[in-house]
Write a protein that binds this DNA or RNA. Sequence first.
DNA 1: ATTCTCACA
DNA 2: TGTGAGAA
Length: 132
Amino acid sequence: MRIGELADATGVSRRLLRYYEDQGLLHPARLANGYREYSDADATAVRHIRALLTAGLPTATIAQLLPCVHDENGRMVPSSCPTTIARLRQEQSRITGAITRLRTAQQALDSILATALHRLGPLPANPAPPRA
DNA sequence: ATTCTCACA
DNA sequence: TGTGAGAA
């Protein structure tokens, strides 16, 4: 299938499918005219890619893990091999750490703002949301 | 319709 | 991580 068909089949834009190839996530064959030719397995792969991105994994990591995953009636199942599980646990702890750092930043900012508001007293209006 | 590259959020 | 535009 060509890129437009895969885009329609997966709901992922053609642009993004080319990007995934650039990131080493997909390896479509090439027709004589240079057009990409995707297999049916690629459609499944795209769903797995989406699932792993949603789980917060970077594309470089997904490129490594994708071959270590298979599909079981529409469900992504990671291989039980120890290195695969270890990699997923590693990502899990990375995200946990990130959440902790964000919580710390949130509390610090809450505290700074609370101090400012305490000194200024009650204010009439809200500040505009940060743009940049 | 598809390819690639440059630039940008 | 993901997109738009422009040229081929």
